[in-house]
Amino acid sequence: MSHDHSLNPKTMPEDPAKATMEGKHKFLGLWFFLGGETVLFACFFGTYLALRNSTAGGPTSQDLFGLDLVFLMTVLLLTSSLTSVYAMYHMKNNDFKKMMLWLGITALLGFGFLALEIYEFAHYISDYGFTFRSSAFGSAFYTLVGFHGGHVVFGLSWLIALMVRNAKRGLNLYNAPKFNTFALYWHFIDVVWVFIFTVVYLMGMVS
């Protein structure tokens, strides 16, 4: 019947994430939301660019940033984006187990990134005394990178909730869009990080 959304290879539509009206709405809605998020981060970037040299005698970006740690973080997050693509690929093939496996790997990589970021912040605070209150640069740095970190935390919580919730239910037309929108969100977080890497860290070490 039309109310039964569980899938098997025979009833499987082309794209389970967008087969229902709700699925389409979620997908479209998230795209619009990401448009708004883009403006949000653009404003944080603008603020950061305006204040990145306002160190008020405190540590400067050249004093602080090191490439190796940030490079490792970048690798972890970029890879997690790739693994979420694999997960969505398996969703389209209706292979629930493999999808969950790749989502699990995505989550692990995300946690790795988060751990490194926490280590990075702790390092700046304890070794350089560089805090949120040190200077306008400090405020702008922690706010921009911290908001991104906050998005990672939210993304991971979302992912874990989805995985736990649906572990026993298998894939159906009701939860497929939820996984799909998560994946899209996760890619966005990744793209923002690429900009942070370039604008904050690379430019910060050069100038």
């Binding site: 708004g36 998020e37 403006v39 949000l40 404003c43 944080f44 603020t47 305006a50 204040l51 306002s54 160190t55 008020a56 949120f132 209150r133 040190s134 200077s135 306008a136 640069f137 400090g138 405020s139 702008a140 706010t143």
Partner: peptide, 30 residues
């Protein structure tokens, strides 16, 4: 448009409640 306000309000909130320096001229704010 609203995300720009959101960001502005966050900066104001952080300056007022958590001691950041976005608008504090003495610490390089603008």
């Amino acid at each position: 448009a609203f995300p720009a306000l959101t960001v502005g309000l966050f900066l104001l909130m952080f300056d007022r409640m958590f001691g950041s320096a976005f608008f504090d001229v003495a610490l390089g704010g603008n």
